[in-house]
Simulated assay, not measured.
Amino acid sequence: MSWASLLRARPGMKAVLTAGVLVTTLWHLRHFLTPSEVSREASKHTKPLLVLVWEWPSKQVPNISGDVCRELYGITGCWLTMDKQLLGQADVVVFPHTRLQPGRDELPKERPPQQHWVWVSLESPSNTKGLSRWNQTFNWVMTYRRDSDIFMPYGKLVPNRSATVNIPAKTNLVSWVISNYQRTQERAKVYRNLSRHLHVNVYGRANKKPLCKDCLLATTSKSKFYLAFENSIHQDYITEKLWRNSLMAGTVPIVLGPPRANYEQFIPADSFIHVDDFASPAELASFLRTMSASRYRQFFAWQRGHSVKLYSDWAERICTICSAYPSLRRGRLYPDLQTWFGS
């Protein structure tokens, strides 16, 4: 029902027209509209949460519309913008750490009293520098860590109604996709020791076998096992190497990262192999080579009732701020971001 029709239908409603905008009080709405009409009209005029993204986290900046959270992800009451001229009106301002490096724009000099700033990072502490510059700056943090104000994992298992197990056909034993190979990294050491006992199919720029954009899952799915090795070992740092390259591809992940107990807070204990479960690379290699078909199939029991939800869209990640907003703590700043993140 339009405001004009409301006035015609209920001439007793008191209203004030100011600067071309009809202003009514909740008292008048309650007395002149039915409950369903109150709900509809109130929802139309509820101020959405305005989230300003100071700089987009990735190199490819999307052409986001203000209501993208509702249109794409069903998250209502959230308005995204990258217009810095709206800084004074924003409820939340998002600052990706990758865009806070020297040589880029610094933070705004001032902020409204009720505005909240969010520090965002999906990198591990080993690959995150310059945090000491931002003490007493941010109200909330948004990272892959479960103790973040806004928890944003790389992926998760979500319930579905499937009762089947789908294991792609296998043509080789173990594969690994690696673009940044550094001999001093723990994952490089484990790979070298393991490869002495079995063959590992290595792909990626580091081995001069780059995969096309749509070839990754098709390639890794052909292996029985995948080396889901993280570039550094930190609490909750479990990346797309597990979620996309392995579980989504339909292969069994061999993980190198935080302890097994930490992985089990994300995925079932029988869905992966941890390198720490074995006394030596030779023992791990023997376990992989001699595994029976029935034992191998047990690793896919998670597929009965679950599927992988991958978080790779930054717009979706930022929209989750609006879902978390009502329950976030107010009135504090992180005194020492580096100490918190490195703990």
Rank of each mutant, 00 (worst) to 15 (best):
K224W: 00
I233P: 03
G257E: 04
V174E: 09
A218D: 10
N245R: 01
E123Y: 06
R146C: 05
N180F: 09
S232V: 07
C215Y: 05
R146N: 02
L131R: 12
L173A: 07
H199G: 10
F229E: 08
E186M: 14
Y144D: 11
G250L: 05
R146F: 08
D214E: 08
L217Y: 06
Y203D: 06
Q235W: 11
L122R: 00
M152R: 11
C212W: 11
Q114C: 13
V200I: 15
D236L: 09
R192M: 14
H199P: 09
N207F: 07
F138L: 01
R196V: 09
K189S: 13
K213L: 07
H116C: 00
T143C: 01
T171K: 14
T184W: 10
P253Q: 06
K208T: 11
W134M: 00
N127H: 15
V190Q: 09
D149I: 07
N139E: 00
P153C: 12
V174N: 07
I233S: 04
T137P: 02
S124G: 14
L217Q: 14
G250W: 02
S121T: 13
A228E: 03
T220F: 13
N160T: 09
K189M: 11
N245L: 04
N245H: 09
G155W: 07
G204D: 04
W117D: 01
V141R: 02
D214G: 10
P159E: 12
D214V: 03
K156Y: 09
S246R: 03
R146P: 08
G130T: 06
V165I: 07
H197P: 03
S162N: 15
R145V: 04
